[in-house]
């Protein structure tokens, strides 16, 4: 009974101050996946950690970030500067940082674990930090990077996830009320093929390359001997570094982050499943954890109403 009256009360409040909850989400989550193992794939770890750094800086706490890294680059014996991963040969930004929590690492990064995290079908003993505990008010950012082809993305050079499996996983999430809105971003060859099969509502897809195109890396760092980061994510991080929790940049700005002249590949966007206008959706709706706080000078009188009304 108490619950119901609370519910009714909340409903009334919502009617009166509905304008506060414009974006419709109350919490933010991020699933960041690097699917590549081996030192020569350093750039994929750097990609994922770039996004990790940004979402963390913009306010998503570690407990709401599922970070999957298929290999350890930071303390790899080949890394001349241990415990660092840089986005740039000039070593401007250590994207690994001093405060990092990796939830799935090494051999744990498998297609099975990834799908289980998304759909929430994990064994009961799984600790909280390895679970995606989202609800129907969660905005989820899913970022993936690795080696892919048309319609698939390889995991650790041993298995792969297809675009159909991915689309079905998102549909399961939708049916189980596991997201409110979902931003899917992928940096791999022929990336857009990964979101072609999506059919669940409120999903935006962003890919770094069209079908038939390779997604290219940015530059080599001679001190580590391999490519340090991919082009798309390099420019994405450059853009995200300019975003602050209160900035008004929108998804439309995000779509323009890496034009063909710098990216060489052609990034693609899919918004037909998304109901809102990307021009009015703030970046921080997905990359940050920003609550809308609006200060009003008017007094809002909340009336107590005990007459029975059902919620919904």
């Amino acid at each position: 009974m108490a619950a119901r009256s609370a519910c009714v009360w909340a409903g009334l409040v919502f009617e009166q101050v509905g304008g506060f909850f414009k974006s419709g989400h109350t919490n933010n989550w991020a699933v960041l996946v690097c699917t590549s193992r081996f030192w020569f794939n350093y750039r994929h770890i750097a990609n994922t950690l770039s996004v990790y750094r940004s979402v963390k800086r913009l306010g998503i706490p570690d407990s709401q970030i599922i970070l999957m890294l298929a290999d350890d680059m930071a303390c790899n014996p080949r890394n001349p500067r241990p415990a660092t991963v840089f986005n740039n040969a000039n070593q401007h930004i250590n994207v690994y940082g001093d405060n990092v929590e990796v939830d799935y690492r090494g051999y744990e990064v498998t297609v099975e674990n990834f799908i289980r995290v998304l759909t929430g079908r994990l064994p009961p003993s799984t600790p909280r930090s390895k679970r995606l505990l989202t609800d129907d008010r969660s905005n989820v950012l899913v970022y993936m990077t690795g080696h892919g082809g048309e319609g698939f993305l390889k995991f650790q050079d041993a298995e792969e996830i297809s675009n159909v499996e991915l689309a079905d996983a998102f549909q399961q999430m939708w049916q189980k009320n596991r997201y409110h809105e979902l931003l899917f971003m992928i940096d791999t060859c022929q990336a857009v093929s990964m979101y072609h099969k999506f059919y669940s509502p409120n999903v935006i897809g962003i890919g770094s390359a069209q079908v038939g195109e390779d997604s290219l890396s940015h530059h080599v760092d001679p001190s580590i001997g391999v490519y340090i980061i991919d082009r798309y994510t390099y420019y994405l991080l450059e853009f995200l570094e300019t975003v602050t929790p209160d900035s008004k940049k929108t998804l439309a700005d995000l779509f323009r982050v890496c034009p063909k002249r710098v990216c060489v590949s052609t990034p693609g966007v899919r918004t037909d499943l998304f109901t809102r206008d990307p021009n009015s959706v703030l970046i921080t709706d997905f990359f940050g954890s920003v609550r809308n706080v609006e200060i009003t000078r008017q007094t809002v009188t909340l009336q107590r109403n005990d007459t029975a009304q059902t919620c919904r």
Binding site: E108, P127, S129
Partner: peptide, 18 residues
């Protein structure tokens, strides 16, 4: 033991669940 290794793997970000 099984429960503990899983819990510790979450607590210390190590693959102790293996």
């Amino acid at each position: 033991w099984f429960g503990l290794t899983n819990a510790l793997s979450g607590l210390f970000c190590a693959s102790l669940n293996f």
